[in-house]
Design a protein around this nucleic acid. Structure first.
Lengths: 260, 260
DNA sequence: TGCCCTTTTTCCACATCGTGGAAAAGACAA
DNA sequence: TTGTCTTTTCCACGATGTGGAAAAAGGGCA
């Protein structure tokens, strides 16, 4: 991997080289020797050495004392890990949310759990009715939300009971879940169907259908939902909406795992 | 995170800054804005902008078109991944860690030794308490860590003495091991029990129970642990946790031996 | 042991390259 | 519209990165 390409305008040469170097280390299996990477990149050893020691000081590169080989450092690992958090969810999700909005004509949402609440992190608003359960950034109790229920339905029963015990239930409308039994029944319904419904449990007059989104490493990281006025998102049409939501949730799961 | 520290000798300023920038992006949840990181790092916006676009060209940083926020790029992720030639460990470990997390409700960890420190390479976070001893990529001195002790307990005494002599002890809390005698006693305890306990020896208030994972050819390659607040992971419950940890460690050992 | 060869590390003078102020271009809100 | 914010571009200056070359550190081999 020569560093052939001339440093495009407005690019910091040394940084560009350092990143190329990181990539070279990543490719080399079992670490690379200074002089080898230098040759591969077509750079003077002294230059590569300086870059490597700089990256070593920040833990992005690591010099194996025994083999004398350079490998990717732990810091590069921990920094890269955070890529898997939800910042990168939003990007791929947007076109999917828009498609979902256009299929259903209702508002499409993407949400995650954060400190035990469901948080909407992206949204494609209905073109017809500008009213959402929660605006982007808005928080809803997990058990009063379709997205929340879709996510925790993947948890073991024990964890769910625990959650209920820890934070209690907050019935906000007459239809909100009011007891642990109701919660467990509802959860088993969600598991059977493969999607969750918020049936006017947070705001009356608003209904919502949600499905879970899986990360590459098998964690339920988010949920996608469609929400709208109960008068339009009728009980009868829920299965229809659910089909679209489940499909799009699967699409997003795939998108965030596939992209490398 | 100011970049305060003067650029040590022999370090490339721009590269050092770029790496600090990556760390800042990683820390900021949900991305950071140009002017904010610039302020945080104490650097001119134009400089930060130049560094970011450089990193963007290589996919290490990514500019969310909608929110205008900068996040860690996919390349940083894929490069960081290779940190572990232990990759073949991490894959099989994930479902096992999740199961362990669900059995215990505490955070489950997988770690290896690297250049004489214990490094966490995978984790299933507790759903209830988001606080870990070390995040993925985090390093802990071997003798202040349950995982570290579990692994070196398989070494001959001579090698352990040698390690202690070479790197000394770093008592980080009042309970940390403080002398070679204490270490050897502790190690023999670990051997008797078949698991290691970090009893607030690295961070006070955090306790951890660990067991070793064996490779197909009988090398102690890793350790699995459960860690949590000392108030929840009480001394009385340690044997209970240990049962789960030992079981899961054995399961992983088997999984990585059976699989090619 | 001593010698030779390879690789890593340090050093330093030169000028390239990164720097950061400032101005321009956008982006929103009122 | 106008004002205030942020992002992006530009450019002259000199601090900073560069790479050749020399010194140091390994590592076989006899």
């Amino acid at each position: 991997m020569r560093i052939s390409e001339k440093p495009g305008a407005g690019v910091v040469q040394s940084v560009d080289r350092a990143l190329a170097l990181l990539e070279a280390l990543a490719e080399s299996d079992g670490g690379a020797r200074l002089s080898d990477v230098a040759r591969d990149l077509g750079l003077p050893v002294s230059t590569v050495h300086r870059l490597l020691t700089t990256m070593q000081m920040r833990g992005f590169a690591h010099h194996e004392p025994h083999s004398g080989r350079w490998v990717i450092g732990h810091r590069a690992f921990s920094v890269g890990e955070t890529f898997a958090h939800h910042a990168n969810l939003v990007g791929p999700a947007r076109p999917i949310l828009r498609a979902l909005r256009d299929m259903t004509r209702e508002t499409a949402n993407l949400g995650v759990l954060e400190s035990e609440e469901a948080v909407t992190i992206a949204q494609a608003e209905s073109r017809e009715i500008k009213r959402a359960i929660a605006p982007p950034g808005g928080r809803v109790p997990i058990l009063n939300s379709g997205m929340g229920k879709a996510i925790i339905a993947t948890w073991p029963d024990e964890a769910i009971r625990n959650l209920v015990e820890r934070q209690g239930l907050r019935p906000m409308t007459s239809r909100s879940l009011g007891s642990l039994e109701e919660v467990m029944e509802e959860i088993s319904r969600v598991r059977d169907m493969g999607y969750a419904v918020d049936n006017e449990e947070f705001v009356s007059g608003m209904r919502c259908v949600a499905a879970v989104v899986w990360s590459a490493n098998g964690e339920p990281v988010a949920a996608i939902s469609v929400s709208g006025l109960a008068a339009r998102v009728t009980v009868a049409r829920v299965p229809e909406f659910a089909g679209s939501v489940v499909q799009k949730a699967a699409e997003l799961s795939k998108a965030i795992s596939g992209a490398a």
